[in-house]
């Protein structure tokens, strides 16, 4: 079916048809997300085991995190999921202007998330709560001294999980910038828009991971106020 290949814009030579190409892209992204799920899964497993081992340490550790900031970030990400979904919708409608607008909004929300995250991290560094040797030097009562070792375990899990998540946000921002550039050029049409759709899957996945991280990390000790 070589005669197709030369005509259709956006169709790679080794695919027979546009449908095949789109299907390949979509299945590819779903499989990639499965991989991502297992990647985060390792950390979720570590979280489960250490929380079981050190329930009080996790309670104390969770008190160190700011629920308002985490909540704000949760809100920002949920909103960005909406704008991304609308972006995908308008790419399928072939509405270039609205597509660019919603992609830009998603990008800005993603960046806002990272800015909030930055201040949260900075606060931890300022209090010497980053668990690495050389940095780790918390105040004697914040958290209470007898929990220091276990809080440190909590905090490395916190940094590993949210750090990995933030890394995915940064990659997502890069993808969005590329999409915005292509969308402005007019690459996406009613017929050819699978890159937007596939990137949308990725963005939603990163959001969903956060939806799990927020309660597990920030809200674990929410029902118990203060330390012992």
């Amino acid at each position: 079916m070589a005669e197709h290949a030369t005509h259709v814009p956006g169709l790679a030579h080794h695919f027979v048809s546009m449908e095949q190409q789109k299907e390949a892209g979509t299945i590819g992204m779903w499989i990639f997300l499965l991989t991502e799920l297992m990647f985060f899964g390792g950390l979720f497993l570590a979280y489960a085991i250490f929380r079981y081992k050190y329930p009080d340490g996790f309670l104390q550790g969770s008190h160190l995190l700011s629920v308002p900031l985490g909540g704000l970030n949760t809100f920002i990400l949920i909103l960005s999921s909406l704008t991304m979904a609308l972006g995908v919708y308008y790419s399928q409608m072939g509405d270039r202007k609205k597509l660019v607008a919603f992609l830009t909004m998603t990008l800005l929300l993603g960046l806002a998330f990272l800015v909030v995250k930055f201040f949260e991290y900075k606060e931890k560094f300022d209090h010497h709560l980053f668990p690495a040797i050389g940095f780790w030097n918390p105040a004697a009562d914040h958290p209470p001294e007898q929990y220091h070792q276990h809080v440190r375990v909590f905090l490395w899990i916190y940094f590993a999980m949210t750090g990995l998540h933030a890394l995915h946000m940064i990659v997502g921002a890069g993808i969005l910038i590329t999409l915005i550039y292509l969308a402005r050029k007019g690459t996406f049409t009613k017929e050819y828009n699978s890159p937007v759709e596939i990137s949308g899957l990725y963005w939603h996945f990163v959001d969903i991971v956060w939806i799990f991280l927020f309660p597990l990390l920030y809200l674990t000790g929410f029902h118990v106020s203060g330390g012992h």
Binding site: Y54, D56, G57, P144, E145, Q146, Y147, Q149, H150, H228
Partner: peptide, 12 residues
């Protein structure tokens, strides 16, 4: 690691 598990009725 005495702080890990506190017996009921005692202080850490």
């Amino acid at each position: 690691n005495p702080g890990a598990k506190i017996v009921a009725g005692f202080q850490p």
